[in-house]
């Protein structure tokens, strides 16, 4: 038996939650009291407690996204008090614990808000746009077959570390939710940078960056204005240097595209 700590004390918090029945329904804030919460409850477990109470009362539970609850899948997606994932550095919402809150706190819960992420219900949004970006440009084309020999393609340690840092993205979309422009540049930048750093990805680098930028536009994401809110909100701490890399890859591709030939200035040319 472990000793009792201050986390064992129960507390109540007031939740001001965005409720919306469907994609085209009007939404509104609803207030719920979360009672009997201890510091050991994760944020999502606290929501479970509230939902069990709502179900017992015959009311609709609060819809929210979650899956692994281990901080690695990127499914949880709620803006807590104005910060995606609640503002604890490099922490997904499922790993945020109620010991970070005080008895009687009022907590605002809102869904990711961006044109590219339509609300499905309450706090659940459709993040399919990120899948669209991956389908457009988040892969390398290669022949499948046997496992390649180790060290057949030499990759330096700095390059592999750089690519791994970019690959840490779990695709939760907090960067888009935090961005005042609803831009997906950190997500896209991490993908483009990850592949651009490795020999397997360099072959298709110009096509990839072009496809990525087109897909971002088609999905309705905004443009980057260098606020770096995305990096601050990212539960994996993805660096905005990857956005600079995306920009660099774009300019490289622009000059390489036609090898000195005419560079089209606008669509359709």
């Amino acid at each position: 038996m472990s000793a009792h700590t201050s986390d064992d004390k129960t507390m109540s918090v007031k939740l001001i939650v965005w409720r919306q029945k469907g994609p085209n329904e009007p939404g509104r804030f609803e207030t719920h009291l979360a009672k009997g919460i201890t510091g050991h409850h994760s944020f999502l477990e606290m929501l479970d407690v509230v939902n069990e109470d709502l179900i017992k009362q015959g009311k609709d539970p609060i819809a929210f996204d979650h899956d692994c609850r281990e901080g690695i899948c990127g499914t949880c997606s709620t803006v807590v008090n104005g910060v995606p994932h609640g503002g604890q550095e490099r922490t997904t919402l499922c790993q945020l614990h109620m010991r970070k809150f005080k008895d009687g706190d009022a907590i605002y819960l809102e869904p990711w808000r961006a044109r590219a992420f339509p609300i499905i219900r309450d706090l659940v949004v459709d993040r399919g746009a990120l899948d669209t970006l991956i389908q457009a440009a988040g892969y390398v084309s290669c022949h499948t077959g046997g496992v390649p020999d180790a060290n057949a393609i030499p990759i330096s340690k700095p390059d592999s570390d750089y690519a791994m840092d970019a690959a840490e993205c779990i695709g939760c979309g907090a960067c888009v939710a935090a961005c005042p422009n609803g831009a997906a540049m950190l997500f896209a930048g991490a993908k483009v940078a990850q592949f651009a750093a490795l020999p397997q990805g360099q072959v298709e680098a110009p096509e990839r960056v072009a496809a990525m930028i087109n897909a971002m536009k088609e999905c309705g994401f905004g443009n980057c204005t260098n606020h770096y809110e995305c990096q601050a909100a990212c539960p994996k701490g993805i660096d905005v240097k990857f956005i600079a890399r995306l920009n660099r890859e774009f300019h490289k591709a622009l000059f390489k595209a036609k090898a000195g030939a005419f560079i089209p200035l606008v669509e359709g040319e």
Binding site: R115, P180, N181, A183, G220, F221, H227, A232
Partner: peptide
């Protein structure tokens, strides 16, 4: 950018900008 972010948060805390 305004069009890409039409619904504003009721509470939004900026961390870095």
């Amino acid at each position: 950018n305004r069009a890409a972010n039409p619904e504003k948060y009721a509470v939004k805390k900026m961390l870095k900008t």
